[in-house]
């Protein structure tokens, strides 16, 4: 996936080309492309006049940033202690089965990416499944299909 240089440039200009805004810039690029493309990082480095390794170091430091291409919809399964005792592993197994991918992977049609998180801080709602930032609490293997339907264009597929 090629990134649009103008979009990246616009994001950098929005933050005044300031070194301190590097994380904010990367966050904006990530929400634009769902991941951080290599040429976008190169463009940011040259526009901010920073060594590429500094941008790359920040991008690899935070777990929120991904350098691998990710799908349109982000699916996160909480495996924190509270969710775990409420059978989050069963929820994860069901999500893996329905999407046909392992955590950290993306479906072939680039629609879904699956990841596990360690705690979302909403333990009372556990087990939690997050689809595109929307929290689905008290999840059970039976409810997953409905929660994922939003991201699927043809629900039966």
């Amino acid at each position: 996936m090629k990134s649009d240089c103008e979009k990246v440039a616009a994001i950098v200009i929005k933050y005044g080309g300031n070194h301190d805004s590097l994380i904010s810039i990367l966050q904006d690029i990530q929400s634009e492309y769902h991941f951080l493309p290599e040429d976008a990082l190169r463009a940011v480095a040259s526009q901010l006049d920073l060594p590429l390794i500094q941008v790359y170091g920040v991008a690899t430091f935070f777990k929120a940033f991904s350098l691998k291409q990710r799908g349109e919809h982000m699916v996160s399964v909480c495996l924190g202690t509270a969710c775990h005792v409420r059978r989050a592993p069963a929820v994860l197994d069901e999500v893996k089965r329905q999407l046909g991918i392992e955590p950290g992977e993306t479906t072939e049609d680039m629609r879904f990416s699956l990841e596990t998180v360690n705690c979302l801080g909403a333990c009372a709602l556990g087990p939690i499944l997050v689809v595109d930032g929307k929290y689905h609490g008290q999840m059970s293997p039976g409810k997953i299909k409905k929660a994922l339907r939003k991201g699927k264009r043809n629900p039966e597929g």
Binding site: I53, Q54, Y56, T60, F61
Partner: peptide, 23 residues
């Protein structure tokens, strides 16, 4: 120059070049 730097964090932190290519 700033060709090399730290990447990753915690136990996977290491010295590397960006995208593992010579900068």
């Amino acid at each position: 120059s700033g060709g090399i730097g730290f990447i990753g964090r915690g136990t996977s932190r290491r010295v590397a070049t960006a995208f593992d290519v010579t900068p």
